[in-house]
Design a protein around this nucleic acid. Sequence first.
DNA 1: TATGAGCGG
Length: 251
Amino acid sequence: MQHQQTNAHFYKEVADMNVHQQMQYKQVGGGDSVDAGIDKTKLIVNYIPQYTAEGELTSIFANVGPLENVRIMRDHRTGYSYGFGFVKYSNPEDAARAIEILNGFKLRNKRLKVSYSRPPGQDMKYSNLYVTNLPKNVTEEDMDNLFGEFGEIIQRTVLKDKITGMPRGVGFVRFSKTEEAQSAISALNGKQLDNALLPLSIRVAEDHGKQKAHFLEHMTYGCPFSNGGKRRFQSPDNIQYDKSQWSLENY
DNA sequence: TATGAGCGG
């Protein structure tokens, strides 16, 4: 029984993640399964809160080692953040450590997900699926069992009624690859599940992100409280966050 | 009928 990691704080962070995140973490930590041709200095950061500036992300990631580049992806007109970005380190060892240390890092209302960026040109388009007519007692685990055989599930949610907390029979499943999502559609769309009133309906989810960015652009247009027609979201570099939660000296 | 933000320059 030998553990490589001895840091209790880090274990707690991992324990707080959901099962899928832990699987992903092990995969990255294990290395072999995702190695083929990836740039070991380039990371993708997901679940970046709105109103996070590049400077703030830099101040977090630069604690691990020197950076080449930090970028948060935004709607180019409104500046509305898509909630993910890229961090490039000078050294691959630092990038690996950043995954270990900062994956799951709590930033305001989110937990950052830090992982290696995929090689360019790998196709993830149309890999997010919108599912309806799920059984009313469906759980996240049921979703994993139902969809897991068609590929690597990146993320899934069962939408719940805001008041009762009961599943609404609606959910999202995001696969790693286009063809995985496609095969799930072909196999499961129209399938009658036990406990469900109607046959499953599965479609590629629409890209509401762009729509929302566009909508918000019109919100600020001509609004007396907007900043003089400069239709950009403020991304202050001086947002405070609680550094006490993640002292790097422990690592 | 639809979340939160999973792959750019």
